[in-house]
Design a protein around this nucleic acid. Structure first.
Lengths: 347, 347
DNA sequence: TACGTCTGTCGAAGCGCTTCAATTCGGTTC
DNA sequence: GAACCGAATTGAAGCGCTTCGACAGACGTA
């Protein structure tokens, strides 16, 4: 392994000069800088991460804590993780992957040992067990998702209340008066994951304002579950013509079932999905949908955490970065799965 | 931050004693050990990762390089990653998440800087650009997937040749004489990702032995693509009664299409899927499938890399761990999507 | 000419840990 | 009772980098 000292000798300068060339924290004359840079290249020098972390007390690593469970739409998680990793690299940081496995203690271990400079937490629950640790720790963190109490926290999430409102609004404008919200698996609600509840709240709120009737039903991610849920909905509210689907994994089954029952989409039933765009476009019918901006969430999480890391880096100088809740506004894309409500013997 | 020196003072011993208690590399008397451990607990001491890495020249971090693209079944990638992370923690290691973004240079950067002690590479291509770097680097690595030339490499993968053979065998036993393999998207083949080719090879091989006719067609992951592919297959080989499906994302569309065409599964068409068990069980028909053992692959990758890390850690003493290709034997689970071939005017 | 100023570079301290050689000490052994 | 032993513990030397204060020299100013 080539060390900084060897580079210095090779370039005929002192070690500190090399260090300053690398960090840019002091002005170095053009010729000296070039000489050093040439030596670095010729020797194939790579700074030792451990030594750097020790001397500067910053590891340049951001920890990302993922959920271990896979009852929620996995590709979204994956996209967020990849976006976090990619964006972190743009800021010259690396990402440490933690699973929920280890529990809240992982937070302490990782930042307490200086392994990571900051944390990004995914799959935040309303009363998340990790929150107390974040509060007592001086380390920067950003949550993806919204807990019940956001005091002193920085969070980023899709605005699910607005998402719910938007879906209802779109259906209402098309004349639908009876709408069903096909939600996540019951376990997701029991865990109080926030986003599911917030969607319902938004749906109910706007439905109330627009005089639309709403039925909400959780649904597991299987064909049978979807079949049962759909049957129950149509039995309880035969006039239901608009569907908002939040559990992406039942979209395929739902389309199959409607077709089997002779209900045409969108003539007899309109569907608004809440899912990534790729999912909305790959089924047998291109779905009107509100996109889950997974990549944007991951990217914003890193961008929100970076100023904090930098502020903390200056020995705590550089005034603290204010906390911030960033709700990404939903975008609804109209595709082929929504249309005017059927007149259905009412008109 | 509490340091080791403070723990030593608090416990009334020297720093080295505390270090040895922590590492267990020297015998420490019972009473001393307990005193030190109490001090550690009382002070809430956490060893500094950077200092440890610098002094021991091991970071206790394993880098995991994921593909950036998402044209292959994402949940499998995710499961592998989570299994890697979980298993690594069982060995007291952490995982650094790298994306393909940075290219082969990431390998050099990460192990060259001592950021990670070892690498696990996913989504290996037959002629992978990262292989030369692995060969010249003294750092341990394990590949998930099989390149063309495995000399000097340790790899773990599902045995896709055996998988192909197994699928054909199962269908042949049921009397199917014409079989179609619905493969991955064309891009996957163009990239020479190995597993896709190996599956075909296995299928053809066994089909030849058993006198079964085979048609192979790549297929994108959309409903339309599946519709087209299925139509073409049935046009070219109307007698096709057995299907092997490798692109998991078209399973749903495929079942819909067959149903629409009045082909019953498994009476008129038998389907063997190559996919994770969760996918096989959640559609409208429980699918006979060969499982993709994502979690096992992730776990084994870590278990294969650990002895190498430990051997390298002993200053290169401890004889080198031999290279090894570990092919996980496929397991086929019979479910409801396969049955006896139709007699079809032949009998 | 003498002074302060600024720029570019250097020397040295030290980050918190591991590890090796050295030391202490109670217990054997002859 | 001297010589020896192994087990437990310690001291000190780094690991490779960052960073701070010092300093030499070039420059402008009085």
């Amino acid at each position: 392994m080539v060390t900084l000292a060897e580079v210095a000798r090779h370039a005929g300068v002192s070690a500190s000069t090399v260090s300053y060339v690398l960090s840019g924290k002091r002005t170095i004359s053009q010729p000296t800088r070039e000489r050093v840079e040439r030596s670095i290249r010729e020797l194939g020098y790579l700074p030792n991460a451990g030594a750097r972390a020790l001397a500067s007390s910053r590891s340049n690593i951001i920890a990302l804590m993922m959920p271990l469970r896979t009852d929620m739409y996995v590709p979204v998680m994956m996209d967020i993780a990849l976006a976090v990793a990619t964006t972190a690299r743009e800021h010259d940081r690396d990402v440490l992957l933690l699973t929920g496995q280890e529990g809240p203690a992982a937070v302490r271990r990782v930042v307490g040992s200086g392994l990571a400079d900051a944390m990004i937490l995914m799959d935040v629950e309303l009363q998340d067990a990790r929150l107390p640790l974040l509060h007592e720790s001086p380390h920067p963190s950003v949550l993806i998702g919204l807990p019940a109490d956001t005091t002193g926290l920085t969070c980023v999430d899709l605005d699910f209340v607005a998402t719910g409102r938007l879906c209802v609004e779109h259906l209402a404008e098309l004349g639908h008066r009876e709408v069903a919200l096909i939600g996540e698996a019951a376990a997701v609600y029991e865990r109080h994951t926030g986003f599911a509840e917030r969607t319902i709240a938004g749906v109910r709120e706007r439905a109330g304002e627009l005089g639309v009737r709403v039925l909400h039903r959780p649904c597991e991610g299987s064909y049978e579950a979807m079949a049962g849920t759909l049957a129950r909905i149509l039995q309880e509210r035969p006039g239901t013509s608009g569907f908002i689907v939040q559990n992406e994994s039942v979209l395929g089954p739902m389309l199959s079932l409607l077709r089997q029952q002779g209900r045409a989409v969108p003539e007899d039933a309109s569907i608004v999905a809440i899912c990534p765009d790729e999912v909305a476009t790959q089924g047998s019918v291109a779905l009107t949908s509100v996109a889950i901006p997974a990549r944007e969430m991951g990217r914003r999480a890193v961008e929100l955490v970076m100023p904090k890391v930098e502020a903390a880096g200056r020995g705590g100088h550089g005034r603290p970065v204010p906390d911030r809740i960033e709700l990404i506004p939903p975008r609804l894309t109209v595709r082929a799965s929504t249309g005017p409500a059927p007149v259905a013997g009412r008109g």
